[in-house]
Lab assay of single mutants.
Amino acid sequence: PKDQAKKEIEKALRNGDEEKAKRLAKKYGISDDDWKELKKRVS
């Protein structure tokens, strides 16, 4: 599910692991808009 994916990506971003977050986003098909939203929430 997308919500689970977003949680994992957000966690990776919080850990400062943007490479992992990007890989997860690609793997789960997270859209650019969702990606920006996640980045905003974390920063």
Rank of each mutant, 00 (worst) to 15 (best):
Ala5Thr: 04
Gln4Ala: 13
Asp34Val: 08
Val42Arg: 02
Lys22Arg: 13
Leu24Cys: 02
Lys22Asp: 04
Lys36Val: 12
Glu37Thr: 03
Leu38Pro: 01
Ala5Trp: 14
Asp32Gly: 06
Asp32Tyr: 13
Glu10His: 04
Asp34Tyr: 04
Lys36Asp: 15
Glu10Trp: 04
Glu10Asn: 03
Glu8Gly: 03
Lys7Met: 12
Lys36Ser: 09
Arg23Gly: 08
Ile30Phe: 10
Gln4Asp: 12
Asn15Asp: 15
Ala25Arg: 06
Lys11Thr: 13
Ser31Gln: 04
Lys2Leu: 15
Tyr28Leu: 10
Pro1Cys: 12
Ser43Gly: 12
Asp34Phe: 05
Val42Phe: 09
Lys6Ser: 08
Ile30Ala: 01
Ala25Gly: 04
Ala5Asp: 06
Lys20Phe: 13
Asp34Thr: 06
Glu8Pro: 01
Asp3Glu: 14
Glu18His: 09
Pro1Asn: 15
Asp32Glu: 14
Lys27His: 12
Gly16Gln: 04
Arg41Gly: 10
Gly16Phe: 04
Ser31Met: 04
Ala12Tyr: 06
Ser31Ile: 03
Glu8Met: 11
Leu38Cys: 05
Gly29Cys: 11
Lys7Gly: 07
Lys27Glu: 15
Asp32Arg: 04
Lys40Ala: 12
Lys11Tyr: 06
Asp32Gln: 07
Lys27Leu: 14
Lys6Trp: 15
Asp3Pro: 07
Pro1Val: 15
Lys20Cys: 10
Lys22Asn: 05
Lys39Asn: 08
Ile9Glu: 00
Pro1Tyr: 11
Ala21Lys: 00
Gln4Ser: 11
Ile9Arg: 00
Gly16Leu: 05
Glu8Gln: 09
Ala5Gly: 09
Trp35Met: 13
Ile30Gly: 00
Lys22Ile: 13
Ile9Tyr: 01
Gly29Val: 03
Lys6Asp: 05
Arg23Trp: 08
Lys36Trp: 14
Leu38Tyr: 02
Ser31Arg: 02
Gln4Val: 11
Asp33Arg: 06
Ile9Ala: 02
Leu13Asn: 00
Gly29Trp: 03
Leu38Thr: 03
Ala21Arg: 00
Asp3Ser: 10
Asn15Val: 10
Leu24His: 01
Glu37Leu: 05
Gly29Glu: 12
Asp33Ala: 12
Ala21Glu: 00
Lys26Val: 12
Ala5Val: 12
Ala12Arg: 02
Tyr28Ala: 12
Ile9Met: 03
Lys22Thr: 06
Ile30Ser: 01
Ile9Trp: 01
Ala12Met: 10
Arg41Asn: 12
Arg14Glu: 05
Lys7Gln: 12
Ile30Thr: 02
Glu18Thr: 10
Ile30Met: 13
Pro1Ala: 15
Ser31Pro: 05
Ser31Val: 03
Ser31Trp: 02
Lys11Ala: 15
Val42Ser: 07
Lys20Met: 14
Glu19Asp: 11
Lys20Leu: 15
Pro1Gly: 14
Pro1Glu: 14
Gln4Asn: 12
Lys26Met: 10
Ala12Ile: 06
Asp32Ile: 09
Ile30Asp: 01
Ile9Pro: 00
Leu24Phe: 02
Gly29Phe: 05
Lys11Asn: 14
Ile30Cys: 04
Glu10Ser: 05
Glu19Met: 07
Gly29Ser: 07
Val42Thr: 08
Lys26Asp: 15
Leu38Ala: 03
Gln4Thr: 11
Tyr28Lys: 02
Leu13Tyr: 02
Glu18Gly: 05
Lys27Tyr: 15
Asn15Ser: 13
Trp35His: 01
Ala21Met: 01
Glu37Asp: 10
Ala5Pro: 05
Arg14Pro: 00
Lys39Asp: 03
Lys26Phe: 06
Pro1Phe: 13
Lys2Arg: 12
Lys7Arg: 14
Leu24Arg: 01
Ala12Pro: 00
Asp3Lys: 09
Tyr28His: 12
Lys36Cys: 13
Trp35Phe: 15
Ile30Tyr: 07
Leu38Trp: 02
Glu8Phe: 05
Glu10Gln: 05
Glu8Trp: 08
Arg14Cys: 08
Arg23Phe: 09
Lys20Ala: 14
Lys22Trp: 06
Lys27Pro: 00
Ala25Pro: 00
Lys20Trp: 11
Ile30Val: 08
Glu18Lys: 04
Lys20Ser: 11
Trp35Ala: 01
Ala25Asp: 01
Asp33His: 10
Pro1His: 14
Ala5Ser: 05
Lys39Phe: 04
Tyr28Ile: 07
Lys7Ala: 14
Gly29Tyr: 04
Gly29Arg: 05
Arg14Asn: 04
Asp3Met: 11
Asp17Gly: 02
Lys6Ile: 15
Ala21Phe: 01
Ser31Phe: 02
Asp32Trp: 14
Glu10Phe: 07
Lys7Trp: 10
Asp32Phe: 12
Lys2Val: 13
Arg23Val: 09
Lys40Tyr: 06
Lys40Arg: 12
Gln4Ile: 12
Glu19Arg: 09
Glu8Cys: 11
Tyr28Pro: 01
Lys2Gln: 14
Ala12Cys: 06
Lys20Tyr: 14
Leu38Ser: 02
Ala21Thr: 00
Ala21Ile: 01
Lys39Leu: 15
Leu13Val: 02
Gly29Ile: 03
Gln4Pro: 07
Asp17Ser: 03
Ser43Phe: 12
Asp17Gln: 09
Glu10Ala: 07
Lys27Arg: 09
Asp33Trp: 06
Glu10Leu: 15
Leu24Pro: 00
Lys40Val: 08
Asp32Lys: 05
Gly16His: 07
Asn15Glu: 15
Val42Gly: 03
Glu10Lys: 04
Asn15Trp: 06
Gly16Ile: 01
Lys40Cys: 09
Leu13Asp: 00
Ile30His: 01
Gly16Met: 04
Arg41Lys: 15
Ile9His: 00
Trp35Asn: 01
Asn15Phe: 06
Lys22Gln: 10
Arg23Gln: 15
Ala25Gln: 05
Ile9Gly: 00
Ile30Pro: 00
Asp17Ala: 04
Glu8Leu: 11
Lys11Gln: 15
Lys11Phe: 07
Lys26Leu: 11
Lys27Gln: 14
Glu10Pro: 00
Lys22His: 09
Trp35Leu: 15
Asp17Ile: 01
Lys27Gly: 04
Arg41Thr: 11
Glu10Val: 11
Glu18Pro: 05
Lys40Ser: 13
Lys40Ile: 08
Leu13Met: 04
Pro1Asp: 15
Lys20Gln: 13
Asn15Thr: 10
Lys40Leu: 07
